[in-house]
Structures are given as C-alpha cells and as structure tokens.
Amino acid sequence: MNFNLETQRLLLRPLQLSDADDMFIMDSNPNVHIYLGNNPLTSKEESIGYLKNILNQYEENGIGRFAMITKNSNKFVGWCGLKFITEEENNHSHFYEIGYRLKEEFWGKGYAYEAAKAWYSYAFTILKVDTLYASAHIDNKGSRRILEKLGLQFKNEYTWNNHIPCVWYASK
C-alpha cells in the first residue's frame, strides 16, 4: 500500500509489522474484546500474525485496515478501514466491509467516526463500490451509532462465527 488518508485529527496509514506492540496492547485488553467473542490476544506473536494477514490483504485485494495515528501526538489510536471479504458472511460474499477497532483510551472521542467517514467517502469516490457493508455485535451500541451516523442502514440480525449475535448494515 502506498497511500495515506488524512482527517482533521488523524493520519490513516497502512499498518506495519512495527505496529505489533500497539496492536498487542489494544487486542490484549479484555474490554476491547467484549463484543468480539471475548478472546483477547495473549502474545505479541498473535499480533504479528494478525498484521501479516493484513499485509497479505493489501497485496491480494489492494485494500485493508489502516492504522489511525493522531496528528498532534503521533499516537497509535487503533485501526480503521475497508476490507474485501471473500468468504461468506450473512449470506454475502465478495463485498467491501468497513470496520474499526480502537485502544480503550481513545473510546468516546469521535476518532472511529472520523476515520470511518473518510473510508466511507473513499469507498464510493475512489473504489466506486455499489454497496458498503458493516456488522457489529448486537449489544455494541457505540459501534451501531457510528454506522448509523455514517448513513448505513440496519438490514437484519444474524449469528457470526456460530455464536456471536450481530447486526448487519448496508449503505443501501
């Protein structure tokens, strides 16, 4: 990946293996994983594997999750971006999904919406996608508010990974 996006407060840049420490801090926090199946990471090696998967997505699909870095203090906030999903989810496959995950210290400050808004615009103006999808845990009110504020519309409830109750959103 050789481009960045910017918002008022954030630089959105491709994730790198050097982000492993920050990714581990974020993904080892049980609070971050409450709505993700309650399986926080237990080793930095897991973060490295996750990052390698994202780097592979960049190569295969030309898109993926990007690091969110504060412009004023150069702090790693989390990730946000588009992912091209090839496997089936909620009776869909081969679609673009918008998603985000933040370190707990950055929750409630508007960063997820700010970054997601930039990616939403990128999806339709640069990638020219027809429909953008997203999902969230059924009880994750904060994430659901962000998706609705972006303009995505609730479509249905479904179960992800055979046990996680989710809601499905689409841009149309």
Rank of each mutant, 00 (worst) to 15 (best):
G37Q: 08
N91F: 12
T159F: 10
M1Y: 07
K52S: 12
T125A: 10
C80Y: 01
Y58S: 07
K141N: 11
I138V: 15
A67E: 02
K52N: 15
M68Y: 07
T86V: 13
P165R: 02
Q57H: 15
C166W: 02
G62K: 07
V77C: 12
Y35M: 07
L55W: 04
C80P: 00
S121Q: 12
E6M: 03
R101M: 02
S93I: 03
S43L: 02
F76E: 08
D139K: 15
E6C: 03
Q8A: 06
W160A: 14
I63L: 11
I48Q: 06
E148C: 09
L102C: 14
A170Q: 14
Q57L: 13
D21Q: 15
N2F: 11
S73C: 09
Y113I: 01
N56Q: 14
G108W: 02
H92V: 08
E89T: 14
I48T: 12
E59K: 15
Q16K: 15
I138G: 00
R65Y: 12
K117C: 07
N29K: 05
Q153H: 11
L41F: 14
E114S: 04
T42I: 09
G37M: 08
L11P: 00
E105V: 12
D130S: 15
T131G: 03
D27Q: 13
F124C: 10
K83P: 00
N53Y: 11
Y158H: 02
F154E: 01
F84P: 02
E46F: 05
N39S: 15
R145V: 08
C166D: 12
A123H: 02
E157C: 01
K128A: 07
N91Y: 04
S171Q: 05
N53Q: 10
N74D: 07
L152G: 09
A123R: 12
Q57M: 15
K83F: 08
A20W: 07
G81C: 13
K103P: 01
E46M: 13
Q153V: 14
G78P: 07
S135M: 14
Y122T: 05
A136V: 10
R145A: 12
K117F: 10
Y169R: 11
G64P: 05
I34A: 04
W168G: 08
K109L: 15
T159A: 06
Y58K: 06
E88W: 02
A136D: 01
G62I: 13
L41I: 02
L36C: 02
Q57A: 15
R13C: 03
D130A: 13
T7W: 01
Y113P: 00
K155N: 09
F24S: 10
K52Y: 04
K52P: 04
K149V: 06
N61I: 08
C80H: 00
G99C: 02
Y133M: 13
H137E: 07
R144F: 00
F84G: 08
L82D: 09
N74V: 01
R144M: 13
Y122W: 05
L102G: 11
M68V: 06
S47D: 02
V77G: 01
S43M: 05
A136L: 08
P14H: 07
N38A: 13
E89C: 12
L41Y: 13
G142E: 05
S121G: 05
I98P: 04
I138N: 11
